[in-house]
Write a protein that binds this DNA or RNA. Structure first.
Length: 419
RNA sequence: GUGGUUGUAGCUCAGUUGGUUAGAGCGCCUGGUUGUGGCCCAGGAGGUCGCGGGUUCAAAUCCCGUCAUCCACCCCA
């Protein structure tokens, strides 16, 4: 047991647990194309700049959670901490910059150098969706609807949607000023983090959980009043479309997300089945400035945490498909049978039957035990007498019945009987 | 990065105020059945007690350090 564990915050996924992952990926590949989204794959590492300019220099993620390294050519590269920035980088070379719409989804590993906890890993996996190039509240709402649809498809129920608006870029300044003015009155009694946040990212103070900050957060001025009509109209349109689509949500004016690129709609899907990290998915509308474009690339999207989805599925007691299937075990008694079984195994596999063949000619008892453990539906027994007669003994492992089958018919016999 | 928790066999865990050859259940192997699994019975293999140091006549047990785990803070998926 000495060194069998991988680096902190990473995990091995053994074959017996992989079915949960297939289930989540399969659901994504089924649902998202129904909305016109195609799968997109970007590198797991990018130039460090891609994330700095994408997520914002002052964000937690960029400041202290990125896995950054220099390659042999002296380039600063970073393991992607999230999926959006890379997709934007890729799409900035397309007509998305002119407002032509792209609909893509992705799934893959992300990396953040945090202390592991329940539902939080250093290498974790996300399924994400991006609608790029167009801005319309209807798209935001459809995106959320698609997330709800996806979740339904994975069998997860009982999650709760929180919704908020961060306002248009132009609206930010006045709101930020107001917040700063409000908090600066009491900042000396607030927590260290908040003292830091007041200059770097006032918004984050809103979801501080420290007791000494709570009361000052509670009497925060109504931010909405600082927003323009454009922002208010945009947000109320998102809400009304969600209502039309029968999607329940709760407007949470404190919902602030940690990435700087968000504008207008932000949302988070939380579930009680998790620990303290109760968000299973989150997203919103964003604008990302790229050096090679004059206008920002715009879009709306979300990402769901696959580990967290699996935790919730397990907490809900949802079944995992059983993928362990080795319906036929070839028992060999003696050297001649061993050789003939190798040929038989190859033949059966080519006709689509999953086979485990004995490779050492151990005792029959050991082989039968192995067949049982492999979950075989049939044990096909071959020894000298069978070779002489040109037959194989086929034993049904469920009911114990066994029958001699002419060797040339074995594939057909098994094919019609295995489930 | 900051707190706390745990670390004994492949797995889940016992191990009494420090005291001889460190245990159980499950799993694994062999036999009971000269060519028949699951149940039962008998036997067997398997442990640097996370690692390093210290205290002691004596350490799995006490102390320090370290690594890893899990959880919380933070942040987010």
């Amino acid at each position: 047991m000495a060194n069998s564990s991988p680096p902190p915050g990473t995990s091995d996924i053994f074959p017996e647990e992989i079915s949960s992952w297939y289930l989540l990926e399969d659901a994504a590949r089924r649902v998202f194309p129904l909305y016109g989204y195609g799968e997109f794959r970007t590198p797991v590492f990018e130039y460090t700049e891609v994330f700095k300019r994408g997520l914002g220099d002052e964000t937690e993620v960029v400041q202290k959670e990125m896995y950054t390294f220099e390659d042999k050519g002296g380039r600063s590269l970073t393991l992607r901490p999230e999926g959006t920035a890379g997709v934007m980088r890729a799409l900035s070379g397309t007509d998305a910059v002119n407002g032509n719409e792209w609909r893509v989804f992705y799934t893959g590993a992300m990396f953040r150098g945090e202390r592991p906890a329940a539902g939080r890993r250093r290498q974790f996996h996300q399924i994400g969706v991006e609608n790029v190039g167009r801005a319309a509240p209807e798209i935001d709402a459809e995106c959320i609807a698609m997330l709800a649809h996806y979740l339904e498809e994975t069998g997860i129920s009982g999650s709760h949607l929180k919704l908020n608006t961060r306002g248009a870029v132009a609206d930010r300044k006045p709101a930020e000023e107001a917040l700063r003015a409000h908090f600066s009155k009491n900042i000396d009694v607030m927590c260290e983090d908040c003292k830091n946040r007041i200059s770097k990212n006032v918004w984050r103070i809103l979801d501080c959980k420290q007791a000494q900050c709570k009361e000052h957060i509670e009497n925060t001025p109504d931010i909405v009043s600082y927003f323009s009509d454009e922002t208010k109209n945009y947000f109320s349109k998102v809400c009304s479309v969600l209502k039309e689509l029968n999607i329940d949500y709760e407007v949470d004016p404190r919902l602030v997300r940690g990435l700087d690129y968000y504008v207008h709609t932000v949302f988070e899907l939380v579930h009680p089945g998790l620990g303290a990290q109760n968000a299973i998915a989150g997203g919103g509308r964003y604008e990302i400035f790229l050096p090679e474009t004059k206008k920002p690339v715009i879009g709306v999207g979300f990402a769901a945490g696959m580990e967290r989805l699996i935790i919730v599925r397990d907490a809900l007691g949802l079944p995992k498909p059983d993928l362990k299937r080795s319906p036929v075990f070839l028992v060999a008694l003696g050297e001649a049978a061993l050789a003939s079984n190798m040929r038989l195994a190859a033949q059966l596999r080519k006709s689509g039957i999953a086979v485990i063949a004995e490779l050492e000619a151990r005792s029959m008892k050991a082989q039968m035990r192995a067949a049982d453990r492999a979950g075989a539906e049939f044990a096909v027994i071959c020894g000298d007498s069978e070779l002489q007669k040109g037959v194989l003994v086929c034993k049904n492992m469920k009911n114990g019945e066994q029958i001699e089958i002419p060797s040339e018919n074995i594939a057909d016999y098994l094919k019609t009987r295995i489930s």
